[in-house]
Amino acid sequence: MTYVVTENCIRCKYMDCVEVCPVDCFYVGENMLVIHPDECIDCGVCEPECPAEAIVPDSDDKAAEWAELNRQYAQEWPNITRKGEPPADAKEWDGKAGKKEMFDPNPGKP
Rank of each mutant, 00 (worst) to 15 (best):
A67L: 09
E68T: 11
H36S: 15
P48V: 15
P51Y: 04
E47S: 01
C40T: 03
A67N: 06
D38G: 14
V45M: 03
P51M: 03
D38P: 08
A54P: 07
C50T: 05
P37E: 07
P48M: 12
W66C: 02
P37H: 07
E53T: 02
K62H: 10
D42Y: 14
I55G: 02
P48T: 12
K62T: 09
E65I: 14
A63K: 13
P48A: 14
A64Q: 05
I55A: 04
N70A: 05
D38Y: 13
I41L: 00
P37A: 13
A67S: 12
A63P: 08
A64F: 06
I35L: 09
M32W: 03
E68S: 09
G44W: 08
C43T: 04
W66I: 06
E47H: 00
L33E: 10
K62S: 08
A52L: 10
D38M: 13
A63D: 12
V45P: 00
D38T: 12
I35Y: 05
D42A: 15
L69C: 04
A67H: 13
M32E: 03
N31Q: 06
V34F: 05
G44T: 10
A54L: 06
K62R: 00
M32T: 06
K62I: 10
I41R: 05
D58C: 02
N70R: 06
H36P: 05
A64Y: 08
P48D: 13
C40L: 00
M32V: 03
V56G: 01
I35E: 04
C43I: 03
E65H: 13
E53N: 10
D61M: 12
A64W: 07
P51S: 03
H36M: 14
V56N: 02
C46S: 10
D58E: 00
C50P: 07
E49W: 06
I41K: 02
D42Q: 13
D61V: 15
N70K: 04
C43Y: 00
E53H: 10
I41Q: 06
C43K: 00
C46A: 13
C46W: 09
N70P: 10
S59A: 14
I41E: 12
E39F: 09
E65T: 08
V34Q: 05
E47K: 03
